[in-house]
Amino acid sequence: MNDLHLQPATFTWRKEMPLADHPAKVHQWIRTINELKSVEEREKPDCVFFGAPLSRSSISPSGASEFPEYFRRSWKGFSTYNMDYDLDFSGMQVWDIGDIAMHGTDINLCHRFIRETSNAVHNHFRDSLIGGIGGDHSTTAMLVKGMKEIYPDKKIGILQFDTHFDLRDPSEQGPSNGTPMRQLIEAGTVEGKHIHNIGLHGFYNTKELCDYAKKKGVRYVPLRLARKYGLEQVVSEILNTLENEVDMIYVTIDMDVLDMTYAPGVPAATSGGMRPEELLEAVFLAGSHKKVKAFDIVCLDPLRDTIRQTTVQIGTSVFLTMICGLLSRGNNNDSG
């Protein structure tokens, strides 16, 4: 693990001793990098995640780099039992391996560190679900590229929950949070037809971007139609389509997919977006799919979250709901 660009998280919980066999709270349950120093090689975590605290690459002013810390601070407010699905995930192994070190000004160097860390984590934990806690959406391109380097012969599909296409031209916008999907298409990392976006709505994308999406075969269901057909049904059909077309699936959750009423803590808050319960149901379906190999949660700015950390609470719920989905797979975690 010394080959990773990782450093300890800026915040960790002091574990209460002695711990119960089945810890009731998330902050007692997740194993941190300090606890993992003596981990035996044979231990195989169900999920490994790390922070990617980068937001200098954001088009809109953003404090999304702060989310990994606020995410960890929120754990004490969550139990290890989800009443909606009657699932107790306290017996699962979920490891927090710290944050990727970031350069203060060099975005390209930060992106290199993210790609190389993703590469190393996917190589080391081939049987685990891999999670990235952003950071802005520019991190996604690097996380997927690092994954592809480990599985060069595998086709990767992307399920994207987002208000935006994120298909802006990198030659004009640079490696920003507005360009990750286009970066992946133009690099040949992911085929356009294997990207599915749910959450597009309103007046927040240009016709030029829509035309580019159609040209490259990017598939999308505007939120209005997804609600008309049934969001759960749409997500299930997308996962079934990807299951037949790709070897593994990457899920990226841009928190600006939520309506600004529920998620004030995003840099590009909009009206008319998803409700939290819609996103959580969709994330559970994604997490339960056997080909979902990795995910990220991006573009959540806790510095804008002025009312009881509303958006951070939802972001943490998204993460834990993904874990619940993983648990619902049973022992069949053969994601490629």
Rank of each mutant, 00 (worst) to 15 (best):
A141F: 07
Y81G: 04
I323Q: 02
S65Y: 05
L223Q: 09
Q183P: 00
N240S: 11
D259Q: 11
G330N: 10
Y212G: 05
N333P: 04
E245P: 00
F49A: 07
R224C: 07
V218C: 01
G265C: 06
I195T: 11
F165S: 04
R304V: 00
I198P: 03
T261W: 01
I100V: 14
G77T: 10
L200W: 01
D21V: 02
M248A: 03
F125H: 11
I307F: 09
S176N: 07
E278G: 01
K214S: 09
G135Y: 01
D162V: 10
F284S: 02
P53K: 08
I156L: 13
I253M: 08
G202E: 15
V298G: 02
V266M: 04
I297E: 06
D256A: 11
I253T: 09
Y151N: 15
S271R: 13
T310W: 06
I185Y: 11
H201I: 09
P8W: 07
T10F: 06
K76P: 00
T32S: 13
D256W: 02
V251F: 05
C47E: 02
T310S: 13
G315K: 07
R72Q: 11
T139S: 12
P68S: 02
I133R: 05
E186M: 13
P53G: 01
G192R: 05
H5E: 13
M102I: 08
Q7L: 06
A64I: 06
G134A: 15
K207Q: 15
D162Q: 12
P53Y: 04
A226C: 08
V218F: 03
D21R: 07
D296N: 11
M322H: 01
L242F: 02
G188I: 04
D162F: 00
M83V: 13
G91K: 10
M181I: 08
D3P: 04
F165W: 12
R14M: 13
S335C: 08
D3W: 03
L279V: 12
H164D: 14
L242N: 06
F67C: 12
G199Y: 07
V312G: 01
P23R: 15
E245N: 07
C47P: 02
N244V: 03
S74A: 15
L320W: 04
K25W: 11
G199F: 14
Q313H: 15
Q7W: 00
L167G: 04
E16N: 10
D21C: 05
Q313G: 14
D127M: 09
I100R: 09
S74P: 00
E277P: 00
G217N: 10
L6K: 02
G174A: 00
R304T: 01
I156D: 13
S176K: 07
L167Q: 06
